[in-house]
Structures are given as structure tokens and as C-alpha cells.
Design a protein around this nucleic acid. Sequence first.
DNA 1: TAAAAAATATACCAAAAGGGTTATTGCAGT
DNA 2: ACTGCAATAACCCTTTTGGTATATTTTTTA
Lengths: 211, 211
Amino acid sequence: MNDNKINVSIVEDIDDIRNALRVLIDGSPGFECVHVYADAEDALRDMSSKDIDIVLMDIGLPGMDGIECMKILKPEMPKTQFMMCTVYDDDDHIFNALKTGASGYILKRTSPAQILEAIHDLYEGGSPMSSEIARRVVESMHKSEKRSEAVELLTPRENEILDFLARGYLYKEIAAKLFISKETVKKHIHSIYDKLHVQNRTEALNKAFPR
Amino acid sequence: MNDNKINVSIVEDIDDIRNALRVLIDGSPGFECVHVYADAEDALRDMSSKDIDIVLMDIGLPGMDGIECMKILKPEMPKTQFMMCTVYDDDDHIFNALKTGASGYILKRTSPAQILEAIHDLYEGGSPMSSEIARRVVESMHKSEKRSEAVELLTPRENEILDFLARGYLYKEIAAKLFISKETVKKHIHSIYDKLHVQNRTEALNKAFPR
DNA sequence: TAAAAAATATACCAAAAGGGTTATTGCAGT
DNA sequence: ACTGCAATAACCCTTTTGGTATATTTTTTA
């Protein structure tokens, strides 16, 4: 709605926190709090028709939680960015929120100045999160390294071919890409299955790249 | 090695940058630069025998790159944390580094004060990265949401069968599990491929469950 | 209640995948 | 010089997969 200010909406059930956030945002130049909602149902009814830059979304709400709420709202408001603002700092909530579309994740104990900074940062295309939250996210990526366990058994050539397998290529397509015969591809794949103790492509991929 | 200071090693091929980092770290109370290396091979030869808290690792090195180097060193130095310090800000390098075990990722244009802050932050268990880098990481998580896109096109029965496909079951095994004929399984799978616009199992799984 | 969608099943056919065997070449380490 | 491993390739064979078409029954929904 408004000229050059960052339009913010808040979904937060606790009156004191909601009001404090509103006061903080409205009292800061460059920011405007255009709507506040006390629960997910309220937000769903009203929010998608508005033009909002940033939504500050609590997770623990009465009834539908903030992640579910965002899941529904996000497709209707593609330009709006969601920042979770919550007391939960466990992996489940963090990953769920981020996977469902949150672009930022801050904890309620964040200082007012940092909250404003985070909103601004999000508006500018960043993903504000504390460095502990970032560590959780990064740690979760390390895991997809399970590959190595399987992969170290395989020769470089076999790994190369495994990558093609993962993309759904046919034997003959792999052969063409690598300038070798289809039979050789088959041989390599047989060795891969052998080493991974599996019988087919899908099982191999599940072992090599757990989802 | 040293009492209460944070021990840092540097792997960086450009003399000026390497020296500047060393001076910065040694000149700051609470930090000590214990080793510097000009390339990956040098670091591999020497580093794992030392007791190092943080490694500042460049990616673009002559010969072996910094990610490969870390991949080898990491298992030998489980207590050491790696921070990539590089000019590359593309997704490939970022994800590769983080998946391979980096806990922090900063760009070379980061200010000296922020570099020190990042090292300290990493030492305290955080994952320092600029908020643009964080955004890339978060964006990569949004994708796992693709399942719903695909899944909503499919009937409940088709989804059920998709799950079996994902586990590598044969048609006849799925048929036995569901007490239907193999031909019916085939029909369902054909509909799945049709709706997802794919030609085979692996492509279907990649669409439905991006890794 | 009528139409649409989903689940069930068969038949025919071609392509692809996978198991087993054997063999040659080149390269690394002993 | 010998050994072992990796990469290459060919052969035979069976099973699995996927395309197309057609048809019946059940369930959902307009």
C-alpha cells in the first residue's frame, strides 16, 4: 500500500508480544505495520488480499500453527516473504518452516534492533537467521554426505556412471555421453550393484543418495 | 597448541591475501595464526598432525581445490572446523563446500572485522555466512516442496504406488503387496508417468522427491 | 441420477535392464 | 616379472519395464 516503506504484517497470538512488535515497527522510519492477526484462521481470511512485503509469523498459535498457515498463504502471495519469529529452536520446526517456504527464521529473544535489521535484510533478498540456526541448517547438509560411505567403495568411473544413473539416463545414453559401449556401461553398473549389495537402479540410488 | 587463543590455519595461494590474513589474525587478541599454506598439497602434507581450531580455506587454489582438500582433511581432524573464504558465490561452490563439511562460508570481500567475528562465531558453534549465502541455502530447501506439486496431480492409489516405486519394488512385488494384478500396477504407473511427464521410474522419483 | 474419475484387469509388443561368462588392455604396486 | 585392479568389450539369456489399446466395475461428484 504505502510508498517507500516496508509493509509488514504480524501473526502472533500473545497480545503483549503482538502489540510490542507493532509498536516497534510503526515507530521505526522505513517500516510500517499494516496488519496484525491473533491467529492463523484470521490471517487466512484476510491476508492474501493485501499487498504485504513481509509477514512475521509465530509458529505456536492456537488452532492451526504458523507453518501450516504459511503453507496455504504462500501460493496466494508469491511476492510476500515470510519470516518465522518463534520460541522454537529445534530442528523439526526449523526445517519444516524453511522447507515450507519461510525465508527467514528468528527467535523471539532477538533484540528489537535485530528484528528490524532482519526484516530489512529479508526485504533486501537475504535470509536472516542467527548463526546457531544457520549451523543447524548446515549440519543437515553434511548428512547428505552419506554418499561417501557408498561412494568410496566405487571407482571414479563407477561414480561417474552412478551420477548418470541418478539422472535417469538409459544405458545407451550413458554410453554415448562417455564414448564407450553399452556393454561396458552395463559392466560398470553391475559392479556398482555388486558393491552396494543391491539388485537395481532405484535401490542403488537410495543407498548412494539417501533422501 | 596455545592456551586460550583460537588457533587458526590458513590455506590461500595469493601471497598478499595470505599475509594480510595472517597479520590480521595475529594482531588480534584472542586469535593466533598457527600455520599458513599456499596450496592444498602443502596443507595435506602437514596440517592433520597439528591441533587447529579453525581452518580458513580458499577454494580456488592451484592444483587441488580447497573443497577437495577439506574432504580429505576433515576425517583426519574431526575437531577442526572449516570456513571457506573465497570469491565464489555461485550455488555449486556454496553447496559443495557445505555438503563436504564446511561449517562457515564467507566471501573474500568481507571486512577484516567481520572475518574475525566470523571466526569467533564459528568457534562458538555458529555457522557464519552472509545473509545472501544463507538465502541460497534456504532456497535450496524450498525445493523439497516439489513433491506436493507432483503429488497433488496423482490419485491416492497412484501415490501409494509411487511410494513403492521409490523403494525399488518390482511391479509384481507391488501387485502382491496390494493384492492386485501386475497389469493394474502397470496401468497406475503409466498414469503416474503420464501426469508427471516422464518416461521412467528414476525421472518420476526425481520429480516427486527431489534430493 | 447421470456423468466423470478411479481402480481394476487382459493382451500384444518392443525396448531396456540385469545376470553370467569370458577376454583384452593398461597401469600400479611388490 | 608378476599380481591385482580398472576399464574396456562381446556374447547369451531371462526378467522387467514401458507403450498402446480395450474393457469392466466401483466410487465420486456435479
